[in-house]
């Protein structure tokens, strides 16, 4: 099938049929914020950061879950999109305790980077100051729920790549929380294979290798896509 031609921020670009708008935007060299998306995992369209304006469509669409079509005219960086993205990042910072100064991921964190990217210089909303537990019952990894953004990348990595579905989300709304097995200490999970893919997938310092301190957790989420590729190619 012939390539699709579309216009992104005024530039004509071509994409293979069936491609997602997000990859096309990135291939065109345009930076667009994402959080719940991770190459190699299925998409859920939950973080709403990659929403774009598509001419002729009433609603904003998530680039990660929109298929390109011929003649599509897309705007990725309008004033209102910039304003919405900033608000969304503010909401995230207000939701839990994202204190970069004392975080293992500082300097390697997607949330921290997002704040810089969308120009979020302060948070207008009231900080919710939650008090979530830190689970370090697992011999190799820990999870600090105070730093979780509920992107569910760990849940999907565990389910789709490792295939054990140790992680899921419990509760709902603002009380949602990622859990292992029956909401039990991670170290007592009977399904976890200790493969560490959840830790690789985590965009923030929520899931971390034990023994690292401030700024020491490397960011290695791109390895998830490599693992998927490896599985496909049977390296």
């Amino acid at each position: 099938m012939a390539a699709k031609t579309l216009t992104i921020d005024g530039h004509l670009v071509s994409a293979r049929p069936g491609a997602m708008l997000l990859e096309t935007i990135r291939e065109a060299g345009i930076t667009i914020p994402t959080l719940c998306h991770l190459d190699g995992l299925s998409d859920v369209g939950a973080c709403r950061l990659c929403l774009v304006e598509i001419e002729g469509q009433r609603r904003l669409q998530p680039a990660c879950m929109t298929t390109v079509s011929e003649g599509m005219v897309v705007h990725t960086n309008t004033p209102r999109l910039r304003s919405y993205r900033r608000q969304i990042v503010e909401l995230l910072f207000a939701e839990r305790n994202h204190v970069c100064a004392v975080c293992v991921a500082s300097g390697n964190c997607e949330l921290q980077r997002l704040a810089a990217l969308v120009g979020m210089d302060h948070v207008r909303y009231e900080y919710m100051s939650v008090a979530y537990p830190v689970d370090i019952s697992h011999p190799r990894f820990g999870i600090d729920h105070n730093r979780c953004v509920l992107c569910t990348r760990c849940v999907r990595a565990c389910d789709e790549i490792e295939g054990v579905h140790t992680w899921d989300v419990s509760g709902r709304g603002i009380d949602s929380r990622v859990i292992t097995d029956m909401n039990q200490p991670w170290g007592t999970s009977t399904t976890c294979t200790s493969c560490g893919k959840c830790q690789l997938a985590c965009p923030t310092g929520a899931i971390f290798p034990r023994g690292v301190t401030v700024g020491e957790r490397p960011h290695a989420s791109e390895r998830i896509a490599l693992i998927v590729e490896a599985r496909k190619q049977r390296w």
Binding site: D168, V169, S170, M182
Partner: peptide, 20 residues
């Protein structure tokens, strides 16, 4: 746990549904 086992579902999924 028993329901998870009998329906061959991951425990976290059963817990996730029960608390949703």
């Amino acid at each position: 746990s028993e329901v998870a086992q009998r329906l061959r579902l991951p425990p976290s999924r059963v817990y996730g549904v029960a608390t949703f």
